[in-house]
Write a protein that binds this DNA or RNA. Structure first.
Lengths: 202, 202
DNA sequence: CTACCATGTCATCAGATGATGACTTATGGC
DNA sequence: GCCATAAGTCATCATCTGATGACATGGTAG
């Protein structure tokens, strides 16, 4: 058997061996797919085909489909210049004040965003939900709980969780246009109002 | 009393041969599942197990999973009476206290439910979204705004909208298991806590 | 009593999906 | 030029999902 000859016929311009380009292609295809059809309905095979790349490379470069989703989300944020909060996106916030301000401004400008959507939507996979959840906990709940505890509040963790959940509700409701005045109010005014209600852990 | 209805005492070990009851059980389980996790992520096997019925009967009685979903949505409107609040489902609530209690209890018992999901998801059809929105406004926001205004609060409508949005966030977060303590806290305890924060429209 | 049909049980199918690891091939340092 | 290693390909696995049809069983009409 002409082992050497057999593959020769087909040897098409096999994908250029360029890890960076492959990663980028996968990322772009993932953003498109996840953004258009959601996580569950976008398969790794589709992403691979759209990227002109073998789906197995997803595992190689990102670890798993869930990790690819997170990478896609993270990549979207790079276009975003949001300098209100920590420059490093993974840094926890300082206090409730900052959390409220950032959440309301961000949702006002960009809608709920992928992370909040992942938290809220029922078709998000458990891994995605968990990743988004963990992120919120670390960046928002934990620092607020610490603040409440320092203030000597009763059940500081629970109160922090309630405060963050409530804040996300307000941000979600505002950006989705649930209620007219809520939608029309300036984020900073709103922040003051929300802080007034949530910031009294006594 | 045992004669004809050997299984009369209670749910007999073996599923009673009762097509109507089986259908109902499947429908109820489907409502619960679809309402809590959405269509895609609720499997027929889960529904069957929750109903204590073989999943194959879904095909027999409803034709398919999709048909079951349609039947569940259609039936949802009928049993939408929440006895904690107004008997008439279209009646507004009395005050913030009642709103908080009902929302938290309900989401604790049945998950977000179709209305809240319709509000939250960006891919719900506009008519559904608008209907859900209008319902929330009339039943919750309006009475709370009236209450705030009677209390002489500043910007009562905006405050009511913020309060309701925050409450929905808490209910959503609790039923979706965002945060551990929030999830574990008894709805009535939580209601007290939330009310404490939201009920001071000074 | 018996036969028949509704009801319920079970095993299994076919398809899809994400993951995995062995295998092949190009690239670049030496 | 050689060859270790990165990059890419492929076959396949394990699992899950909805669906289906053969079979068992109970109730009841006659």
């Amino acid at each position: 058997m002409d082992a050497t000859a057999a593959p020769s016929t087909a040897t098409p311009p096999r994908r250029a061996r360029n890890a960076g380009a492959t990663r980028e292609a996968l990322l772009a295809a993932a953003q498109e797919g996840f953004g258009r059809k959601g996580y569950e309905r976008t398969t790794t095979r589709e992403i691979g085909e759209a990227a002109g790349v073998d789906p197995a490379l997803i595992a190689r470069y990102f670890g798993s489909k869930a990790d690819l989703y997170l990478a896609a989300v993270a990549a979207e944020r790079l276009d975003d210049d949001e300098r209100v909060g920590p420059v490093d996106d993974s840094q926890p916030f300082a206090d409730l004040d900052q959390v409220v301000e950032v959440v309301l401004r961000r949702t006002a400008r960009r809608g709920p965003g992928p992370i909040l959507q992942a938290l809220v939507r029922d078709d998000a996979s458990p891994e995605i939900r968990e990743a988004a959840r963990a992120r919120i906990v670390r960046r928002m709940v934990d620092p607020v709980a610490a603040q409440f505890e320092a203030d000597g509040a009763d059940r500081p963790v629970l109160r922090a969780q309630v405060a963050v959940a409530a804040l996300l509700g307000v941000g979600l409701g505002r950006s989705l246009g649930w209620f007219d005045e809520l939608h029309a109010t300036d984020p900073d005014d709103l922040a003051a109002l929300v802080l007034e209600a949530l910031g009294r852990p006594d």
